[in-house]
Nucleic acid binder design. Structure first.
Length: 479
RNA sequence: GGCGGCAUAGCCAAGUGGUAAGGCGACGGUCUGCAAAACCGUUACUCACCGGUUCGAAUCCGGUUGCCGCCUCCA
């Protein structure tokens, strides 16, 4: 099945056809680093990461660019508030981003362009727009002439004439039309500023993304992603700027993730109504947070909930347990001795193939990770069933278990479930823990349950849990 | 007011023409010294409501109700 991608502009799923066959250029709108990242941001970046991983899995040569907008009014305001340079604020929040991106197993982008490091490209783009009649300078400001771009409003399904009522002219602005937006903003006294043909100033919001995306990915880019709240005006303006300058289609597929709400209200930096990822990661592992975010299709908006996180934690633990069991089977010499052609084996191999195929079909359908996760769980249950019932001759073969492990490797590679690769059987148990476990086994043989429970308590205090299996105790790190 | 989207079990959630994935939870059972993990069974005769198209609709069309987002900074 071919990969289908929902494009916001066309409003429907389309078969993915990149500019150059076999390669995919993706630009993902990163943060304006005015504040620390919240869980809603992370949803967007996890979604982008999952899309990228899937394209890599499909064999595409992917170039992934995620910007930071490191200069804007809010950053300046924050810097003034704290009495520091704007860079201090920007750098601090970028560092925060990287810390939690790593927690959530988000791959590093190929390029992380900063607005302030691309002033030359931005100025050049504005000059082009000026020459083509799409931009005009008034004093030290430069504006985009929206009504000159006939396709304006197509992405966000808005009619230019109906937009006028919402638009407004701020005090001190000298726009020709209320719809026009700022490309370059003259600096006030004491503000960070760069040289330009229009005097000292800084780029407006929107233009940096046009300049940087085209610089790294070309004039026509395969995919551009971001939150649904960026559709208007940010992405609408990006199209206007880029296509007016180049005369070419800017983006082939617009991908917008749904927003994460909190108590029925969108999380927002400006109102302080949000959960910083920093606080959530104190309660749940980054892997759990990621799994939670991927359990729903990225395009639907959802409600942030600790209860859902707890459910995700339980579910991920199930997957982890089965991976550990597969590893145990493959590591045990007994596992290798089973006949390759038992009915159990062929059944498991067929089931695994079917589950992987269904998983990939779901991913091909607009990266439907929610459905894909369902297929992961189907295989989990099948394996657990074998584990519960299977003993003796009907245990599947080494090859069948290898097949199962391969399936989970595929799931992990695409969804990024586990930071250090697939969970393995506990082979790295500290000697003091093993000693306690052995002591407890002796107590259990002697039916000294009190002593056994006490020893289990001591093992727990060291951060490990014991599961008494028919074949002996399994020790694993507590989660 | 304009534009867009969504309504599926106790909760979350997949499903765009062929008769309801999956997870969490709950209840009953199995295993177990206990626990943990796990398995089996039960948990939507039905997909907000009303019409229509069709041999057949949760899925398409029209209408109604409710919720949400955007229209201002925002992933």
């Amino acid at each position: 099945m071919a990969l289908k991608v929902y494009d916001t502009l066309r409003g429907r799923k389309e078969e993915f056809a990149p500019v150059t066959s076999g390669t995919a250029g993706i630009y993902f709108c990163g943060m304006t680093v005015q504040d620390k990242p919240h869980i809603g941001h992370m949803l967007a970046f996890v979604a982008g990461d999952m899309i990228r991983r899937y394209l890599l899995f499909k064999g595409f040569k992917v170039t992934y660019v995620q910007n930071f907008t490191d200069i804007d009014d809010k950053i300046i305001a924050k810097a003034n508030e704290e009495g520091v340079d704007y860079r201090t604020i920007a750098e601090r929040n970028m560092k925060e981003y990287f810390t939690y991106a790593e927690e959530l197993n988000i791959m590093r982008a190929d390029v992380y362009p900063l607005a302030t490091e691309h002033i030359g490209d931005i100025v050049a783009l504005i000059r082009t727009l000026e020459e083509k009649g799409f931009a005009y300078a008034v004093g030290g400001d430069v504006y985009y002439r929206v009504r000159n771009f006939s396709r304006y409003g197509r992405l966000s399904k808005r009619n230019v004439d109906e937009l006028v009522s919402g638009a407004r002219i701020d005090v001190g602005e000298a726009k020709e039309d209320p719809l026009d937006f700022t490309l370059w903003k003259a600096a006030k006294e004491g503000e960070p500023a760069w040289e330009s043909p229009w005097g000292m100033g800084r780029p407006g919001w929107h233009i940096e993304c046009s300049a940087m995306s085209m610089k790294y990915l070309g004039t026509t880019i395969d995919m551009h992603g971001g939150g649904q709240d960026l559709v208007f005006p940010h992405h609408e303006n990006e199209i206007a700027q880029s296509e007016a300058a180049t005369g070419k289609q800017f983006i082939r597929y617009w991908m917008h993730n749904g927003l994460l709400n909190l108590r029925g209200e969108k999380m927002s930096k400006s109102t302080g109504h949000f959960f910083a990822i920093e606080d959530i990661v104190k309660e749940f592992s980054g892997e759990v947070v990621r799994f939670y975010l991927l359990s729903t299709h990225f395009r639907s908006s959802t409600e942030f909930s600790r209860e859902r996180l707890r459910e995700a934690e339980a579910g991920l633990e199930r997957i982890r347990n089965v991976c550990v069991w597969i590893d145990e089977r493959l590591e045990s010499p007994r596992g290798a001795q089973n006949a390759a052609v038992s009915p159990e084996s062929s059944r498991l191999i067929a089931f695994t193939d079917e589950a992987v195929a269904a998983f990939l079909d779901a991913m091909d359908d607009d990266f439907n990770s929610g459905e894909a996760v369902g297929h992961v769980f189907r295989l989990v249950r099948e394996l657990n069933r074998i584990r519960a019932e299977g003993n003796g001759a009907e245990v599947p073969s080494f090859e069948a278990f290898e097949k199962a492990r391969g399936a989970f490797e595929t799931f992990d590679r695409i969804l990024g479930l586990f930071k250090g690769g697939l969970p393995k059987a506990g082979r790295e148990i500290p000697p003091e823990v093993s000693a306690l476990v052995a002591e407890r086994e002796a107590a259990r043989k002697a039916k000294d349950w009190k002593r056994a429970d006490e020893l289990r308590g001591r093992v727990a205090a060291l951060g490990f849990v014991i599961e008494d299996r028919p074949a002996g105790p399994l020790v694993k790190p507590a989660r």
